[in-house]
Simulated assay, not measured.
Amino acid sequence: MARDRSRRSARGNRLGLVIVGSVLLAAGLAALAVGQGLLGGDLASAPLIGDRLNELLAQQWVPYAVVAVAFVAGFLALRWLMVQGMNDTVGRLFLERDDTGNVEMSESVARGALEQEVADYPGVRRARARLTESSDEPHLRLALTLEDDADVAHVWKRVRSEALTNLRGSLGLDQVPAVIRMSMTAPAKNPRRSLA
């Protein structure tokens, strides 16, 4: 469900950018062609705003139409910006569902426990987790920042054998698809030695 929403949002972004880019490109090419006289010398030397356009702009309804168009454009731009800020993190995780009710857990509780557990491993400086996709079958995105002298293979084995096993057990799931990204911190710079 969240994956479908993000795909639709990405498709909408691409389509919108293609449309806006095409309109701006066509307008720019048309203005360049007119300015260079490719569409006739009379058109290139004519005033930018002719008498007919002046008469149209003098109508009383024009400012109201311009304001309405500006409001619609502003609303669409604001909506687009809000969609960009949405993330696919689930709010609640469903542990059980039946006719008598639901057993739910906040995503932040599961995430916080996992982050705390992994952050306590030797060599891990920071752990950031997100549970995404769906409340029934969440996916894990885990970003680890390791110390420059950390044993990466050992950290990976502990995350896979302990942290992910504990997460699956606490959520009552057989599997939790995970993407784990590990990065190293920059080594500390050596202080300059004094030659004195």
Rank of each mutant, 00 (worst) to 15 (best):
Arg52Trp: 04
Arg14Pro: 01
Ala113Leu: 15
Arg111Cys: 05
Thr165Ile: 05
Val66Ser: 05
Trp156Cys: 06
Ala186Ser: 09
Ala27Pro: 04
Arg79Asn: 10
Arg192Trp: 02
Leu43Val: 13
His139Ile: 02
Gly123Pro: 06
Asn13Ile: 05
Ala178Ile: 02
Ala77Glu: 00
Arg126Tyr: 04
Arg52Phe: 06
Glu147Leu: 15
Ser45Ile: 09
Leu131Lys: 01
Ile180Asp: 07
Arg14Cys: 02
Arg130His: 14
Val72Ser: 06
Arg158Asp: 06
Ser22Trp: 00
Arg7Ile: 07
Leu32Ala: 14
Glu147Asp: 15
Pro122Asn: 11
Arg111Ala: 07
Asn13Arg: 11
Glu133Ala: 14
Ser170Tyr: 08
Ala113Trp: 14
Trp61Pro: 01
Leu32Ser: 14
Gly28Phe: 09
Ala163Tyr: 06
Ala163Thr: 07
Met182Val: 04
Val83Leu: 15
Val67His: 10
Glu96Gln: 13
Glu115Gln: 09
Gly21His: 05
Ser194Val: 11
Val67Pro: 05
Arg126Ala: 09
Gln60Arg: 14
Glu55Ser: 15
Glu115Ala: 00
Val18Pro: 00
Glu162Pro: 00
Gly172Ile: 02
Gly28Lys: 10
Pro187Thr: 07
Arg193Met: 04
Ala68Gln: 06
Ser135Cys: 03
Leu131Met: 10
Ser22Asp: 05
Thr89Ile: 11
Trp156Lys: 12
Asp174Glu: 04
Val72Thr: 12
Val152Ile: 15
Asp174Trp: 02
Leu32His: 10
Gly91Tyr: 02
Met184Trp: 07
Glu162Lys: 02
Ala10Phe: 11
Glu133Arg: 13
Leu144Cys: 04
Ala196Asn: 09
Ala30Glu: 07
Ala65His: 06
Ser183Tyr: 00
Gly16Lys: 06
Leu25Gln: 08
Arg7Ser: 11
Ala113His: 14
Glu115Arg: 06
Leu144Gly: 05
Arg79Pro: 03
Pro187Asn: 06
His139Met: 07
Glu104Val: 15
Asp42His: 10
Leu17Tyr: 11
Leu29Asp: 01
Ala26Lys: 05
Gly169Tyr: 03
Gly101Leu: 07
Arg160Leu: 08
Pro122Lys: 08
Arg3Ala: 12
Ala26Val: 10
Met1Leu: 09
Gly74Glu: 03
Asp4Arg: 15
Gly172Phe: 02
Leu25Val: 10
Leu171Asp: 00
Ser170Pro: 00
Ser108Gln: 09
Thr165Gly: 00
Gln59Met: 14
Gly101Arg: 11
Gln59Trp: 08
Arg181Ser: 13
Gly21Met: 08
Pro122Val: 06
Val109Tyr: 11
Thr132Lys: 15
Met184Asp: 00
Leu93Gly: 07
Glu147Tyr: 03
Arg79Trp: 12
Val176Ala: 01
Arg8Tyr: 12
Val124Thr: 03
Trp61Ala: 04
Ala31Arg: 10
Asp120Lys: 08
Arg168Trp: 00
Gly37Glu: 03
Met105Ala: 14
Val124Trp: 04
Asp88Val: 10
Arg125Cys: 06
Leu195Tyr: 11
Arg160His: 03
Arg193Val: 02
Arg125Lys: 13
Ala44Trp: 01
Ala68Trp: 05
Val18Asn: 08
